[in-house]
């Protein structure tokens, strides 16, 4: 997840056109993975299809993070979402479900509402960047689906998130 944000920071510096360049970013990301694998090697060397959900997730960056009890998008989040918007414009056959999440430090109902707020903040930003509202659905998981399971800020910061999940075709609801 941190990797994709870093990748996108590079993207942002190079501009939206650079972001969709498959050679630079897919290869770069995969290369880093290959190095990390060490002697085993041989993994992740294929080039991601820039129109694939995997590319969106890994190279564009599928998520933004929030401060405690907040749904405001910071600069880093807006940069990621600019990339998401560019990708969605380049890939008009895709729709997206935006999943809002909260950390465990809150009551269940409130966190459902907070997750919905976060998802909606992302949705509204993407709409403001030219994505048609009917392509975007927001959903909340509250604190029900953390990705990091420790009970301190290193995990909480990863769990306070909105994840954009892209799929080819229409939305189900």
């Amino acid at each position: 997840m941190k990797k994709s944000i870093t990748a996108f920071a590079l993207c942002a510096a190079l501009g939206a056109a650079g972001c969709t360049n498959p050679d630079r970013f897919a290869a770069g990301g995969a290369g880093a993975g290959g190095l990390g694998a060490g002697a085993d090697g041989g993994i992740g060397t294929s080039v991601l299809d820039p129109s694939s959900p995997a590319y969106f997730q890994q190279a564009v960056g599928d998520r933004v993070l929030f401060a405690v009890d907040q749904s405001t998008l910071n600069d880093a989040a807006r940069a990621v979402l600019d990339g998401q918007a560019a990708w969605l414009i380049s890939n008009p056959e895709f729709t997206a479900v935006i999943e809002g999440h909260a950390d465990e430090q809150g009551t269940r109902d409130y966190n459902l509402a907070l997750g919905a707020r976060r998802a909606n903040a992302v949705r509204e930003y993407l709409v403001s960047r030219g994505i048609a509202g009917h392509r975007l659905e927001s959903l909340t998981f509250g604190k029900e689906r953390p990705i990091a399971v420790c009970s301190d800020e290193t995990c909480y910061t990863q769990n306070r998130r909105a994840v954009t999940v892209v799929a080819a075709g229409g939305l189900t609801s």
Partner: peptide, 9 residues
């Protein structure tokens, strides 16, 4: 119950 529409509950 609570209902959320456009991010508002």
């Amino acid at each position: 119950f609570s209902q959320t529409q456009d991010g508002n509950t």
